[in-house]
Design a protein around this nucleic acid. Structure first.
Lengths: 242, 242
DNA sequence: GCATTTAAATTGTCAGACAATTACCTTTCA
DNA sequence: TGAAAGGTAATTGTCTGACAATTTAAATGC
C-alpha cells in the first residue's frame, strides 16, 4: 500500500484505489485481514472517517467484507460469480436505460451472445437444464399468465439455455444480456406479440438441444431473433403515423 | 425514497440501497440533483456521516458524481459504456483469479463470445477497424517485441475485431472477456507459443473480415481457439511430470 | 455596465465520543 | 478438572460538532 500525495481532495478515493490495486495485484490475498481502521488512519495520516469512506467504496464493489468485534475487521472478499451476476444485471440495465440504445442494437447483442452458447448447450445440456427449459415453455403456454409472468418465464427459459452450456464465465457474461432485456421486451408485450409463436419456438429450441443439434438450435434461435426484431419494427412503424 | 427501519446496523447500506433503487426505477433521472447531505441526514434521521458513507458506496459504482460549492451536491450520473468497461474488466479479472477457473473454461468462453461478434464484424467493419487490426498484426511480427508488448497488441487486435461489429453493447460485454484473459495468456507466452503461427492467423482473420467473409472469419477464430487450447494443454502436460 | 468583494451553500476532512458486537481471558462453582 | 458465568479488550458502526475548500450568487463600488 502506498502513501497518498499532499492533495487533500478525494482522499477516500485515493485510499480506496490503493487498496483495490493491492487486491487486484494479489498482494492482498483472499480472506486476508486488512489493518484496523485506526491503524490505516495512522498509516495514511488521515482521519478514520476518510478510511471508512474508502472501505465503503470497496464494500460496494464486494471487494471486502467487514465484521465487528474483537477479531473483526475488514477482509478481502472472494468475489463469487453469484455476487457478480447482480452487479452485471444492474449495470447492463442502467447502461440500456441511460444511453438510449436502440432496441435493434440491444436485441442483436443479446441473440448474438446467446447463439454463442448454443453449440455448447446442445453438446452438454443436462437433463435438469432441459427439464427447466421445457417446464418454462409449458408455463408460457398457459392462458391465464400475466404479461409480467410471461416475461419472467421467458427470462428463466433463456437463463436455463445459457446455464446448459456449463460454463460459469459464459453464464456470468450472459446474465446482463438476458436479464436486462426484460424491460425492453415488455415494451412489445402489450401490443403485437404472439405467445403461441414464441412458445412453439421455445419448444423447438428445447427439442434441438435435447437432440444435441447445435445447428438446429442455432437456426431456431436465429428465427426467434428475427421474429423479435420484426415485432419491434412493427410496433415502431405503427407508432410513427399516429 | 423510503425511510429506514429501526435496525441500527448497516445504515449506510440501507440508505445506499434506497437511493440506488430510486435511480434504477427511474424516479431519479440522470443529472437530477439529490438533496444535500444535511437534508438527507434529517430526512432519514441519521447522521451526516452515515449519509456520506452511503453516497460513497454509490460513487464507487459510478451511480452518482459529487461537486463542491454553492450549487454543488450529488447528481445522478449517466453511466457511460466507457465507465462500465473498466468495471467489467476489473470484475472479470478478479472472478478469474479468485475462483480458479480453468484455462479451458475461460478460453472457451472468450472465443465463444468473440465468435459471436465475427459475422457482424465481417459485415460492418470499417476501414479504420481493419487498419487497426492489420497494424497490430504487423506489430506482432516485429522480432524485438517483448512478451508483454505482444500480449498488449494481441488484446488490441481482438478489441478492434469486437469493435468492428459496431455494437456498443457487444463491445461492453466483450471487454471483460478479452482483456481479463491477458494475464492468463501470459502464462503461456513464456514457453510454447509460436508467434509466427498466431500472427499468420491474425492476418488470415483480417483478410477474411476485409472480404466480408463471415464463415472464413469464424473458421479462423475457431482455429485460433483450438491452437490456444492446445498450447495450454501442452504446457500443463509438460509441467505434470516435472 | 463592469469588475471586485462578500456572503452563502455545499462537500471534504478532522477529532472525539459512545454504542454494539465479538473473541478471549478470568473467576467461580460443582 | 470442567464448565458456566462474567469481565475485558478490540473493532466496527454511529453520532456530534467543527473547520477547510470550493463554487455560485449577490452585493458593492467605480
Amino acid at each position: 500500500m502506498k502513501i497518498d500525495p499532499e492533495n487533500p481532495a478525494d482522499l477516500s478515493a485515493q485510499i480506496a484505489k490503493a487498496i483495490k490495486d493491492a487486491i487486484i495485484s494479489g498482494a492482498l490475498p483472499v480472506d486476508e485481514r486488512l489493518p484496523s481502521e485506526a491503524e490505516m488512519a495512522e498509516h495514511f495520516d488521515v482521519s478514520r472517517s476518510s478510511v471508512r469512506e474508502a472501505l465503503k467504496r470497496l464494500a460496494a464493489q464486494s471487494l471486502i467484507r467487514t465484521q465487528r468485534g474483537a477479531a473483526g475487521g475488514a477482509f478481502v472478499n472472494r468475489l463469487r460469480f453469484e455476487d457478480a451476476y447482480g452487479q452485471q444485471i444492474t449495470t447492463s440495465t442502467l447502461l440500456l436505460s441511460m444511453n438510449d440504445v436502440s432496441f435493434a442494437t440491444a436485441c442483436e447483442a443479446r441473440y448474438a451472445l446467446e447463439r454463442a452458447c448454443a453449440p455448447l448447450a446442445a453438446a452438454r445440456r443436462s437433463a435438469d437444464h432441459l427439464a427447466t427449459m421445457r417446464a418454462e415453455a409449458h408455463r408460457q403456454a398457459q392462458p391465464g399468465l400475466t404479461d409480467a409472468a410471461f416475461c419472467a418465464s421467458d427470462v428463466a427459459f433463456h437463463r436455463a439455455l445459457v446455464d446448459a452450456a456449463g460454463n460459469p464465465v459464459l453464464s456470468y457474461q450472459l446474465a446482463g444480456a438476458v436479464e436486462a432485456m426484460q424491460p425492453l421486451m415488455n415494451m412489445i408485450t402489450f401490443t403485437a406479440r404472439s405467445r403461441e409463436r414464441i412458445v412453439a419456438l421455445h419448444l423447438d429450441i428445447a427439442d434441438a438441444i435435447a437432440a444435441h443439434g447445435a445447428a438446429d438450435t442455432d437456426a431456431k434461435l436465429a428465427e426467434l431473433a428475427t421474429y423479435t426484431q420484426q415485432l419491434a419494427q412493427d410496433v415502431i412503424a405503427r407508432r410513427r403515423p399516429a
